[in-house]
Design a protein around this nucleic acid. Structure first.
Lengths: 241, 241
DNA sequence: TGTATAAGGTTGTATATACAGTATAGTCGG
DNA sequence: CCGACTATACTGTATATACAACCTTATACA
């Protein structure tokens, strides 16, 4: 049940970074120092530091040391933003209507998305967010009860699911997929849109400590919403090709 | 000058995947088989396979073996990536068809997007990218001749516009807008899609030293492409609410 | 025939060791 | 005072070895 040693070292370093104790530019312990303090071999320390470097948290300089990296500038498209706040920031009125709130047995496809080995139950939530009374987002969300057991006890008229989850569970990894879809009849009805209007579907998965927290599909009517991001690129040029 | 052994093994496997010799689901050599054929230690083979797994090219099952993973047809949202490379990375064949390559007087709307004060001329390029002969992206691009004067001298059958611009001009800021659209009749024809198929439109502007380099609209048929990103969240917690 | 067991191959992790390449600090000599 | 050399620390790579966990297949047994 205990995690591998190299993972423990990674977690130890990540916690110092998350807590703010080690700010960007700070030097982290060298491999030999980790060998001493954790009583591990150098190869194990090397693996921890090498993987954190590949993940973008650290940068290493031969002969000098290992340092906390500057976090990259990222777009709002890729951040976990709360739609209620976005709408409020535009000076408009947000409201939500809950269509379904239930607990289900995970079907095969969902179990795979949640990286579950055994059959399990999942929270399911379907709701519509409106801006000044006009539906702008259909939220179809599944949540892992193992990670967020009290999710289904919340009243999502008061707090959005995103806001609750971000506050309740430390998210350390995100995956986004964006595609264009033609909504189903049920989705059209919930969003109150015409028959041939395409929609943007934002599919999001989030992880916390190796477990999938939630799988959400957010559907935006094309005429009412676009996703936007603008950011400075890092000076070293992370741009490939 | 020779690359490390583990990198050579990675490249060897990637070439088999890119060339199509090893299709998704194919079993790749086990660690012990790589040990024999490359005359390396098992730890070196392990590192090559482990890193390719982390990069999403392989999947491993303890006790069974290592297999080529199904490559999703999707494009990175975070980076400025070259579609020809993305397609090659999936082991597929990229080709491009140039529909229009010209120099125009900037109309009002474009002049504003380029933040031009005075009337100016712009390069205009319209081309279609295909994957195994199937159109997957319609690229409608305008380029500022002041920033990239030799843009129009390139042969974009050889080098994609993105690849040329990234190499020729240091990009320091990016703007992305994503929306779902119903394509026009002309766009449908170029992409060879049906009448009611929605598309993803990725609108991109890039800046270099305060000047707009290029304004591009990239249109993806919904059924053939999605946009994707996955990343570790910055430790300090840039997540808003 | 059906079931338990054993064997062998596979990945996953961990260690001890070795050597190369790089950067820095200090020392020695001019 | 400055330059060359040296010692030291750090990362990067590679090997040989070991054990655990997992899966499949073959074998032995009831």
């Amino acid at each position: 049940m205990t995690s591998p040693l190299y993972a423990q070292v990674k977690e130890h370093i990540l916690e110092h970074i998350r807590s703010g104790a080690w700010t960007p530019g700070t030097r982290v312990p060298s491999e030999n120092e980790l060998v001493e303090s954790f009583s591990i071999s150098r190869m194990t320390a090397n693996r921890a530091l090498r993987e954190l470097t590949a993940d973008g948290f650290l940068s290493r300089v031969p002969g000098v040391g290992t340092f906390v990296k500057e976090p990259p500038a990222r777009s709002s498209l890729l951040e976990l933003r709360n739609i209620a706040e976005e709408i409020a920031a535009r000076g408009h009125k947000h409201a939500a209507y809950i269509d379904r709130q239930e607990t289900i047995d995970a079907p095969q496809a969902l179990a795979e998305e949640f990286e579950l080995r055994q059959p399990a139950r999942l929270f399911h939530l379907m709701m519509v967010h409106t801006e000044n009374g006009v539906p702008v987002q259909l939220e179809d969300r599944y949540v892992n009860p193992f990670v967020a057991p009290q999710f289904n006890d919340q009243d999502f008229a008061d707090i959005t699911p995103t806001a609750y989850l971000v506050a309740a569970v430390p998210v350390d990894e995100l995956e986004h997929t964006v595609e264009a879809i033609m909504p189903t009849a049920e989705q059209r009805e919930l969003l109150d849109i015409g028959e041939h209007e395409p929609c943007l579907a934002l599919h999001r998965r989030s992880w916390s400590k190796g477990h999938v927290v939630t799988v959400a599909t957010l559907i935006y009517p094309a005429s009412r919403y676009a996703l936007y991001s603008r950011y400075k690129t890092s000076p070293s040029g992370t741009l490939s090709q």
